[in-house]
C-alpha cells in the first residue's frame, strides 16, 4: 500500500461514448496543496465527483487513508474528513448565513430527532458553542455582518465564501475546492487565496480545481494537469509552466 492520503488506480468514468476520466494512477500526499488544471471538459469536476462519492466510477478504485471508498456514499466520505465544494456554488438559499454554518457544523448526533424533542441542556450548550464557532469563522471571513441574511441574498463571490466557511467549520483533513475563485472579484479572490494558503499552512490537505493560472502558479506546491480525462502532466509550478504537453493542451484548444 502507498503512503498517499488519497490514491486512485485505473479510475475510469464514461458518459455514453465520452470518456470523462481515465487515470492510471494518481496519489496525493498529506498536507500538500495541489491544483488540478486543464481545459474545459477535461474531467476535473468529474474527478472530484468520483473521489467524493457523488458519482460512481465505471471501473478502478479509490483509496482514502488506505481504505477503499469506491462505493461509499458521499456523506460517509465527508465524515472521513474529506469535504468538497461545488463548481456551481451550493448554499442553502432560504436559510440564513448563520444557519448555513450551524447546520454544517452540527454533529450528526446533535441533529437527532430525539434530542431535538427533548432539548436537553447539553444540546443547548452544544448549540451555543457551535454559534460561537460559526461567529468566529464569519468574522475571519468578513461575513459576520451578513449572519442573518438569507444565503440567497448574497453575491456570487459571497456565496463562494460561505461555501468555504461551511466546509471548514468541521475542521476537515482534506478539502476539495472546485473553482473557488470563479466569478469572484480580484480583491475578494486575493482574500480567498490567502485563506486557502492559511488553511494549507495549518496542515489541511487541499486539492483545488481552478482556471486562474496566475493564482494556481502562486500558491500550489504541485500541479496536476488533466486533458480529455487523462493525466498529461504532474509537477511543481515551474515544471508545469514549461511542459510541452500542457502548452499543447491549452493552445490546441480554444481556451483561456
Amino acid at each position: 500500500m502507498s503512503n498517499s492520503l488519497i490514491e486512485v488506480n485505473n479510475l475510469k468514468k464514461t458518459f455514453g461514448g465520452l470518456t470523462a476520466v481515465d487515470i492510471k494512477q494518481l496519489g496525493f500526499n498529506k498536507g500538500q496543496l495541489t491544483s488540478i488544471i486543464g481545459p474545459n471538459g477535461a474531467g476535473k469536476t468529474t474527478f472530484f465527483d468520483l473521489i467524493s462519492g457523488f458519482q460512481n466510477s465505471d471501473s478502478g478504485d479509490i483509496h482514502l487513508k488506505n481504505k477503499d471508498i469506491s462505493n461509499f456514499q458521499p456523506y460517509k466520505i465527508a465524515r472521513m474528513g474529506m469535504v468538497r465544494t461545488f463548481q456551481l456554488t451550493k448554499v442553502f438559499d432560504r436559510m440564513t448565513v448563520l444557519e448555513n454554518l450551524l447546520f454544517s457544523g452540527s454533529e450528526i448526533s446533535n441533529d437527532s430527532l430525539f434530542k431535538s424533542v427533548i432539548k436537553s441542556k447539553s444540546q443547548k450548550k452544544y448549540e451555543e458553542n457551535l454559534k460561537d464557532k460559526a461567529k468566529n469563522i464569519m468574522e475571519d471571513l468578513n461575513i459576520l455582518h451578513m449572519a442573518d441574511s438569507y444565503a440567497r441574498e448574497l453575491s456570487g463571490g459571497q456565496k463562494k465564501l460561505l461555501e468555504l466557511a461551511r466546509s471548514i467549520i468541521n475542521e476537515p483533513e482534506i478539502l476539495l475546492l472546485d473553482e473557488p475563485l470563479a466569478g469572484v472579484n480580484p480583491k475578494l479572490a486575493e482574500e480567498i487565496l490567502s485563506l486557502i494558503k492559511k488553511l494549507s499552512n495549518e496542515g489541511i490537505t487541499i486539492l483545488m480545481v481552478e482556471h486562474n493560472i496566475e493564482a494556481v502558479m502562486k500558491i500550489s506546491e504541485r500541479i496536476v494537469v488533466l486533458a480529455e480525462g487523462s493525466l498529461i502532466a504532474d509537477g511543481n509550478p515551474n515544471e508545469i509552466r514549461t511542459d510541452r504537453n500542457v502548452i499543447e493542451a491549452y493552445l490546441g484548444k480554444d481556451n483561456d
Binding site: S52, G53, F54, Q73, P74, Y75, A78, R79, V83, R84, T85, F86, K90, V91, F92, D93, R94, M95, E99, L102, F103, S104, S106, I108, N110, D111, S112, L113, K115, S116, Q123, E127, R166, S167, N170
Partner: peptide, 21 residues
C-alpha cells in the same frame, strides 16, 4: 437542529451530503 437539517435538505440535498449528513 433537526428542523434545521430538514430545511437544509429542502434547499440542497447534495450540499447536505457534502457536509457529511
Amino acid at each position: 437542529p433537526w428542523g434545521r437539517a430538514l430545511r437544509a435538505v429542502r434547499e440542497d440535498e447534495d450540499a447536505v451530503r457534502a457536509m457529511g449528513k
